[in-house]
Amino acid sequence: MNKRSIKQGGGINSNQKAEGWVLALLGGLFFIVGVWASVHFLPDSIRSGEYSDLFLLLFVFAGIGLLYAALKQIQAYKRFGATPLFLDPSVPSLGGHLGGRFSINSQDIDQNASSTTPFCAKITCTRRDKNRDHTTYEVIWQDKGPVHLKQTAHGVDASFVFNIPNTCKATQELSRRLSSSTRSFIEWQVSAEGDFSTSSLGKFERNWAVVVEDNDARQATD
């Protein structure tokens, strides 16, 4: 079993925290560039009657918008905690099942807290093609199912299960032609979302990148 599989068996961290900091980095970059350019170019442009440079303010406003979105996402992440995902089996395979469980540990979830909308989970198998110019995504297969919630002393435990068809493709980097600059990957992701009736909690959203093995490869390592 490879290192990624071992990490997956020990719990998979969600992508939300990293995405929030990426937004914050982009927002900060836009804001700094916009402010610097506005301070250095706008005064002279306005004095000379050239108002076309006012578009530089768009960088400032875009930066503020991205920073606000990043703040909301980071706050939402902290509100529910890390919520690592534990799989059963630890490394699922094609033709088998993927069971998942995670815990939402929050002091704001009391015994009367409930979900205002049904919690649901989604599993997606995607092909990602990447080259120097752009990245494209193609959904190969996906499925949705309910998330079962169980009240605990520290919050709630959540669980779900999916059956993976044998006709899908395992997590891998596809071989490429020597003349092609495009790299292609088969990737799997699981997501879960729902709303709590407690106003201080609001909407819960998480997604996790998971590894799905080919059934033959799994049997060879067992």
Rank of each mutant, 00 (worst) to 15 (best):
P118Y: 08
F160E: 01
G194N: 05
R177T: 12
R128M: 14
L174S: 03
T152S: 08
T136D: 11
F185E: 12
G155Q: 01
E173M: 14
T171V: 01
D157F: 02
E205S: 12
E213R: 15
P165L: 03
Q172S: 04
T167L: 06
A153H: 05
T136I: 09
D216L: 14
N207D: 15
F119K: 08
C168T: 03
L149S: 02
T116H: 03
Q189S: 15
V211A: 07
N112P: 05
C125T: 03
R176C: 02
F160N: 02
R177E: 12
F204P: 09
T126I: 13
D133A: 14
P146Y: 07
C120M: 15
I123P: 09
E205L: 13
V139M: 06
N215Y: 11
N163L: 09
F160A: 00
N131A: 08
S181W: 09
L174N: 00
A113K: 03
R177M: 10
K169D: 01
T126G: 07
A192T: 06
D157T: 02
S159T: 08
T116P: 02
A121N: 08
A113M: 14
S200L: 10
F204E: 07
H154L: 05
Y137N: 07
T116G: 13
S114P: 00
N207C: 05
F204L: 04
A209D: 11
N112F: 08
S200A: 10
V161S: 15
K203F: 07
S197A: 14
N166A: 13
D143A: 11
I140K: 08
W188M: 04
V212T: 06
L178M: 11
T135H: 09
L174H: 06
L201Y: 00
N215T: 13
